[in-house]
Each structure stands twice: as C-alpha cells, then as structure tokens.
C-alpha cells in the first residue's frame, strides 16, 4: 500500500529555523550567516565588520567550529559577546545549534548577530538557520575558479566578499573571470573586493550590510527580491 508522506527531509531543521526567525523578528535582530572555506578570513572579516559598525549597532557573534574556542576568544577579546558552538565533527551548523546558542544571549541587547559557519563551501548552503542573509567570502589565494567547482554557494549568497584583495598582485587570480562566473550563477549578488586586515574596501561592504539592517528595522521584510534566492522560502 502506498502512503503519501510529503515531508521535507530537513523538516526538523526547517521548523526550528522558522522558530529562530520568529525570535529574531520579535527582538528586532538582523542575522547574518557567513560562509567560506577554512582560512578565507571569516573571523578577520567579522572583526573588521565589528570595528566599522560597533558605534551604530550592538553586535554579537556565534562561532561555529568542529572543535576549540579559539575564534570566540578572539571576538570576546574585542569586547563583543561571542558564543562558541563545537559541532564535534559536523561540517555545518543546524538550526537547533543556533537555538541553543541564542538561548545564552540576550537578544534584546543585540541589533546585529553574525554567525560564523563551519569552514566549508558545500553543506552549510542547504541549511536554513533562520538568518536574514547568507553571505559568502572567497579569498584571492583560493583562486578565481572556485565558482565553477562550488556553484551552489555562489548562487545562494546574497553578497560575495572577495577577501585578501591586497594580495591580488601575488596570485594568479583573474578578477574579471571571477566576476563573470559569479554573475552567471547569481546575477544580483554584489561582489565586494576588500582586505579585512588592511581595511581597504570594507566601507562598501559595511554600507551594504547597514542598508540591509535598516531595511529589516523599517519592516520592509527579509530581503525583497534577490534573484535566484527563491521566494519559495517563508
């Protein structure tokens, strides 16, 4: 006998993500999910973003790593609340991990919550955490051909940061080709070339982020249209 099930495979994750999203909306918190390979500069980018926006917004960070609290310590040393999630081997964060981390934060005291996902260009893409935007970072030394190899993350990101831009002259990185492939995968995501360590280009990125935060505060909804980032999401 055939029985209809019609359930998403990630049903539990999606239900908890919706609950997270509701909590973030009630507390007026903008949530950013930052995705990149290991070593692309996620933590440095977060520190640069904190420096640029800490006078305007109250910021907190959730750090996802397989092991250690190295990253959370770096953020805390900057005077910003940070919660470390150790996935113990899992290659991505899931929404119940975020829920438990958020339980330890006072959302009413936060305007911007940055989630540093586990360094990985594949699995985090399919997991909704309840965030407002997924943003990905690629660093110049990784090479301009990464969008061919990991297309989905570029297709789903709402913005692409090209980090370590100050090293462009040392590496064989074809920026024009990179931009062309990214635009073929995602015609609407802006690309921000910058260096988190020198600060070059960080302004354009933080201006975009601040605009998104203000749009959510003004109640104009989660995103507006972001091309292929489907409007099938709730």
């Amino acid at each position: 006998m055939r029985v209809d099930v019609s359930a998403p495979i990630l049903a539990r994750n999606e239900r908890l993500a919706a609950e997270n999203r509701q909590r973030f909306a009630e507390a007026g918190v903008f949530v950013l999910d930052l995705l990149a390979s290991p070593g692309a500069g996620k933590t440095s980018m977060i520190l640069a973003t904190i420096d640029a926006l800490r006078d305007r917004y109250r910021i907190a960070v959730i750090e996802g790593d397989i092991a250690s609290s190295v990253d959370a310590e770096k953020i805390k040393a900057h005077g910003v609340p940070a919660v470390q999630i150790n996935t113990g081997g899992a290659c991505h964060l899931e929404s119940d991990m975020i829920r438990r981390a958020v339980d330890t934060l006072d959302l009413d005291e936060i305007d911007l919550l940055i989630i540093e996902n586990v360094g990985n260009l594949v699995c985090p893409t399919d997991f909704d955490l309840g965030e407002h935007a997924k943003v990905m970072i690629l660093s110049v030394p990784e090479g301009h051909d990464k969008p061919y190899k990991y297309p989905n993350i570029f297709a789903r990101a709402e913005a692409v940061i090209l980090n370590k831009y100050d090293t462009l002259s040392v590496f064989d990185f074809d920026e024009a080709e990179f931009r062309e492939v990214v635009s073929r995968l995602n015609a609407v995501a802006p690309v921000f070339p910058l260096s988190a360590t020198t600060g070059e280009g960080v302004d354009a990125w933080t201006a975009w982020l601040a605009e998104r935060i203000e749009a959510v505060r003004a109640g104009s909804g989660p995103a507006g249209l972001v091309g292929q980032e489907g409007t099938d999401e709730t």
């Binding site: 055939r2 029985v3 209809d4 099930v5 019609s6 359930a7 998403p8 495979i9 990630l10 399919d126 297309p151 989905n152 297709a155 492939v181 073929r184 995968l185 015609a187 609407v188 249209l225 091309g227 292929q228 980032e229 489907g230 409007t231 099938d232």
Partner: peptide, 27 residues
C-alpha cells in the same frame, strides 16, 4: 546552474519553482 534568466525578456529576477527539493514523497 548557470545563466538563469527569463528566455522571453532576459530578466534575471526569477522565483525558484523547483530544483531545491529534498523531500520524502511516499512509502
């Protein structure tokens, strides 16, 4: 995965209809 645009008007603002499914249909 590449060059997603409306074949009629060339617009790149498109709603995903299918292709991201991960679901159990039936047993």
């Amino acid at each position: 995965r590449f060059d997603v645009a409306c074949p009629q008007c060339g617009n790149v603002f498109c709603e995903a209809v299918s292709g991201r499914e991960l679901e159990i249909e039936s047993i």
